[in-house]
Amino acid sequence: MSNVEAHPAEVLCRSEGLPGPDSACADGVPVELITSREVPLGGPRAMLVRRTLPQRQRSLIGAWCFVDHFGPSDVRDTGGMDVAPHPHTGLQTVSWLFEGAVAHIDSGGGVGTVLPGEINLMTAGTGICHSETSTDGTTTLHGVQLWLALPDAVRNSLGRAFEHFEPQPVALDGGTALVFIGSLLGEDSPVSVYSPLVGAELRLEAGAVLDLPVDAAFEHGLLVDSGDVALEGVALTPGTLGYTGIGSERLRIANTGTGPARLILIGGEPFEEEIVMWWNFIGRDSDEIAQYRAQWQEEDDRFGRVEGYVGHGGPGRDPDGRSRLPAPTLPNVRMRARKNPPPHVQDSSTNSDTRSGS
């Protein structure tokens, strides 16, 4: 997945920063609402994605540092997904679809088709590049694309890797779960991650109420794809991410509507390292980011090459006629720190979208 913004903001994330209250309260777990912003995903008829992370309000949930939610989109109107070869450093990408199919090719030799209900995880390590295009048979595209920040201990030693896993449904009271990263409900995903994490799709039938056991050492985010959902009594609209801090052993999730609901749960132990995010790179300071950009522009071997990309604009082309995405211009100033709040829900004095449920 690429961040194709022409003027991407720089982000330096920290685990400490703004003051916040304890996560426990008498009438339920507090919930912080993180709303999305729309971002075009390349091309003259760009498909819009709804981005909830990173935000000024909060940049990370565990090591989850990037959350894009898209569709359902008719590819006849949007042109579908066509992202020419682009680079990544210091992260893992997670592709998870609800509808449609996306062809993936990367410079580590990974070639595959992303299908609904199957996780495709790409590890960038020191550097990788890849392309993503919706397949010719796709009429509707719908899903999420996520990033995981790699810890400093491994980011410069990991090579390029591509993993695939199809989780089996886990029965819930009034629904099912698909656990694609980490452990939840007695299910374990075998894909390789490098900090304690969880990721799952939850489906709830109309009227179902789920008391979900979770790791109290994790902070969590619940993204609503569809349906009328309440987290700890707080209503979440589709495209909104409900955040809960550490200290909770269960989360109450209710489908308050008359139809089915689908959600994405992410979580992990607070990521305590400072990271700089800019465009498709994660580093530790401005100098690293500038080095990565220069190496990508110079077609350095750090990133390798994608062989076989065929975009919707013609062989080896994206809709704008490029065979690889050029990096945007760097800011004219050194990238400055953006503080991530501690792993607790912010109170109303720091965030007007904080609520306590019942």
Rank of each mutant, 00 (worst) to 15 (best):
V39N: 15
T35S: 10
M335E: 08
Q55T: 13
H104R: 09
V229I: 00
G199D: 02
T140M: 05
H69N: 08
A103W: 07
L60K: 13
D74H: 12
A290D: 05
P40G: 14
V29Q: 04
G268Y: 06
D27N: 08
Q92H: 05
V345H: 03
I105C: 06
L146D: 04
I282P: 01
V310M: 07
H312R: 06
S356Y: 06
W64F: 09
H344T: 12
V234A: 08
L141G: 07
D301W: 00
T354A: 14
P21M: 04
Q291V: 04
A254Q: 06
R250Q: 04
D301G: 14
L172Q: 07
S95R: 04
V114M: 05
E10P: 03
G268E: 07
M335W: 01
N332F: 12
G267I: 05
A171Q: 11
P44D: 05
D287M: 13
G257L: 07
L204N: 00
A149Y: 13
V193R: 07
T78I: 12
V102Q: 03
G304H: 02
L48D: 10
M47S: 09
G110I: 05
L330K: 07
R284T: 05
G127Q: 00
G227M: 01
L210G: 04
L212G: 05
V154N: 06
D318K: 14
G242E: 02
A294T: 12
G42W: 12
R37D: 13
P260T: 06
F281C: 03
D228V: 01
P331W: 11
R336H: 14
D22H: 09
G242Q: 02
Q57V: 04
A235R: 07
T140D: 06
G117W: 08
A149V: 11
L115N: 07
V102S: 06
G143T: 02
R324W: 06
S286H: 09
R250F: 03
A6K: 09
L202E: 01
P8H: 11
W296Y: 06
G245H: 03
